[in-house]
């Protein structure tokens, strides 16, 4: 066995296991060796608590990539849900449920607009969601006048900050949603159609699948997931903050591609993205441990996106040619 052969063999082996989980474990061990505090249970739980916000947003992003699109408006949706829910709750309890419902409805509306732009007006997903993202950011500025006010209901904090049976509530929410969406995508007719549309929309149409309806519901789901992530994050920090969602524009895409979902659509999984979100969060805490600048973090993040696409690409083409 020559060494390139061995290399590709190793790559394939990792691929079958789910390469992302290997990466998650490796990075954890490396950061633990540098900073032994990482090996404490509380620190691990802390990472899982923080990863939940990105994790839920990235689940939505996974769906968008699975249908062969992309959703860059998740950033705007996270900011919107943060601003809306705090300005409506204004620290009182009785406003909690209506505030949550309203922000979820708004998010669904954004997703519906994205989906309609993409299917009916034939705007490419990148341009459509980049446009709505800009509009949402502008709307948040106009709505708050640049200085957001308000705070969350007292009972709402438990979702982001509380613990249940020793586990962070945010993590429980995230994993529950993740497992549910994994089941929906793999074991329901909707999920199977979603994969089919992503792999080949023209063929899907010829098989009688209502392609536009599937695409629109996917973008609605993506927005709703972004909103849920934003709400959980808001519950964690307790106050409004303009541009709080901006970080998710790139990290959500990063988590999805690290998790092994292909950009071409129809290949990938929600479970992989859960690993991807943990990896990105670990990477951030790792960069904090080794005290690199924000700039370096951006550079690393970009490199991670490109590298993981490249690695999956290599594994994928090895598989086809074998």
């Amino acid at each position: 066995m020559s060494s390139p052969d061995r290399f590709s063999h190793a790559l394939r082996f990792l691929h079958h296991l789910g390469a992302v989980w290997i990466a998650v474990i490796l990075l954890y061990v490396v950061s633990g060796l540098i900073s032994p505090g990482m090996f404490q249970v509380s620190q691990a739980l802390n990472i899982l608590q923080i990863a939940a916000f990105l994790g839920i947003v990235a689940i939505g992003q996974t769906l968008a990539l699975l249908v062969g699109g992309i959703d860059l408006s998740v950033a705007g949706v996270v900011t919107m849900s943060n601003i809306v829910v705090t300005s409506l709750m204004v620290g009182r309890s009785e406003t909690m449920v209506p505030a949550l419902l309203i922000s979820l409805l708004l998010a669904a509306a954004v997703g519906f607009i994205n989906g309609s732009l993409i299917t009916l007006a034939r705007v490419t997903p990148l341009v459509a969601t980049l446009g709505t993202n800009s509009i949402l950011f502008g709307a948040a500025l106009v709505y708050t006048g640049g200085a957001p006010h308000g705070s969350i209901s007292p009972g709402f904090a438990v979702f982001g900050q509380g613990h249940l049976l020793g586990l962070p509530v945010s993590t429980i929410c995230w994993l529950t949603i993740g497992v549910a969406m994994a089941w929906v995508t793999r074991q329901t007719t909707f999920g199977r159609r979603l994969y089919a549309v992503g792999a080949n929309p023209a063929a899907a149409r010829l098989m009688g699948i209502p392609v536009s309806a599937i695409l629109i519901s996917t973008y609605v789901l993506s927005s709703v997931m972004a909103c849920l992530g934003g709400l959980l994050l808001t519950s964690y920090i307790g106050s409004p903050s303009l541009g709080i969602g901006d970080q998710f524009l790139l990290t959500s895409v990063a988590a999805v591609v690290v998790g092994g979902t292909a950009l071409s659509g129809g290949l990938g999984s929600v479970l992989g993205t859960i690993g991807g979100a943990i990896f990105i969060t670990e990477l951030n805490s790792f960069t904090n441990i080794v005290r690199v600048s924000t700039g370096t973090q951006f550079v690393l993040q970009g490199a991670v996106i490109a590298l993981s696409v490249l690695i999956y690409h290599l594994v994928g083409s090895k598989r086809i040619s074998s």
Binding site: I70, L126, L250, V253, V257, L263, S264, S293, T294, G295, T296, Q297, F298, V299, L300, Q301, G302, A303, I305, A306, V309, L310, H313
Partner: peptide, 26 residues
């Protein structure tokens, strides 16, 4: 040459170059 789609390539350079700008002048 690496056949990564233009969208994702320039999205990752977007991140890398933003980072470099911050490193050069925080």
């Amino acid at each position: 040459y690496l056949r990564i789609p233009d969208l994702i390539t320039t999205l990752s350079t977007f991140s890398v170059v933003s980072g470099l700008a911050l490193i050069v002048r925080p």
